[in-house]
């Protein structure tokens, strides 16, 4: 996104841009043993903040965004900052207006998802409502697996085989709920108990806690490429996509998930704030609870489980 000419122009004209490091990025080198080597990063993640010149956060955008997803969010924040009410407000009044704005936006996101569900009649089209537990009753005939889990993430499985991959057209933003292929083992399909329904109107902080635990970063999911294959991106009649194009598709999925679920979760967090927030005060909760990256852990959670035979971590 940051190399897009229109975004460059937008950022340079509307903002003072600044970057800072949260921690060094883990790098991994893979020697394939045939002369081929690959080096890449692991667990990298980002948060964009829009702040007043005094450092107070107006909006926070965790994760990556495509230009077409970032622009409306940035415009909304700029328009709100330039509104007469916000221009006149200072101190506690400004903080209150900000919290109210985020609460209103979160409600609008929920409402938008409800509307989308009405049109699509598909639980898989409403990841935010899924993560909130609003869709407590899975549509057993079409989506028996983990219907209360955001559809853009691999369904949580008890263990081993038994996964029920969605057929092409299912899942992410296709407008098609898809169907489920037969499980490979009889009785292996998992129907998880419904999540407790999230009531953000009564208790914003509890609602944030509940919503944040149901977020997953799909771009880091090991199944992402496999899922794209099942969605028909690769098929017998489909020309094989280049790694670059497939990477763009993964970013597009990630960006849409961030707009639909992750950013509203940040809205919910900011709606709970009755004191001015800075990037420093929000950093830990956004990385740890929203993006699920344990930034205090020197191994970022990668050493939590070591399969037998793994070298001991120093």
């Amino acid at each position: 996104m940051l190399s897009d000419p229109q975004i460059v122009q937008k950022i340079n004209s509307e903002f003072v841009a600044c970057w800072e490091t949260v921690r060094p990025v883990p790098k991994v080198s893979i020697d394939f043993g045939n002369g081929k080597k690959m080096q890449r990063t692991l667990m990298g993640n980002t948060v964009l903040y829009i702040c007043y010149p005094d450092g107070q956060v107006v909006d926070a955008l965790p994760g990556v965004y495509r230009p077409e997803d970032f622009t409306p969010l940035a415009e909304a924040a700029l328009t709100f900052m330039r509104s007469p009410a916000m221009t006149a407000a200072t101190g506690a009044a400004r903080t209150k207006l900000l919290a109210d704005w985020h609460r209103t936006r979160f409600a609008a996101s929920v409402q938008g998802e409800r509307r989308r569900m009405t049109f699509s009649k598909a639980a898989v089209e409403t990841p935010l409502l899924n993560a909130m537990g609003v869709l407590a009753k899975p549509e057993a005939s079409s989506v028996p697996v983990a219907a209360n889990v955001a559809p853009n993430v691999p369904p949580r499985q008890p263990s081993g085989f038994g996964g029920a991959p969605r057929t092409p057209g299912g899942g992410f933003g296709t407008g098609n709920p898809g169907t489920v292929l037969p499980a490979r083992e009889e009785g292996a399909v998992a129907v998880l108990p419904p999540l407790p329904k999230l009531n953000y109107e009564k208790d914003l902080k509890s609602a944030f806690q509940q919503l944040s635990v149901n977020i997953e970063d799909i771009s880091k999911g090991t199944y992402t490429v496999q899922r794209l294959k099942f969605q028909g991106v690769f098929g017998p009649t489909t020309p094989r996509m280049s790694p670059e194009d497939l990477g763009k598709l993964v970013v597009a999925m990630d960006s849409k998930n961030n707009v639909t679920v992750v950013h509203p979760t940040a809205d919910l967090l900011l709606a709970t704030c009755d004191t001015p927030q800075t990037p420093q005060s929000l950093r830990d909760v956004l990385f740890k609870q929203v993006l699920h990256v344990p930034i205090d852990d020197p191994y970022l959670g990668l050493a939590d489980a070591l399969v037998p035979g793994s070298p001991t971590v120093p």
Binding site: F15, E20, R23, P24, G44, T46, L48, I50, Y52, M81
Partner: peptide
């Protein structure tokens, strides 16, 4: 890009613009 949030805030105050802060790994 600036690499200091403090300097970005000062510049933002002078230019009457918001700050866009990008926190990242690496």
């Amino acid at each position: 890009w600036l690499t200091s949030f403090e300097k970005a805030k000062q510049k933002a105050l002078r230019e009457n613009k918001p700050v866009l802060l990008f926190q990242l790994f690496g």
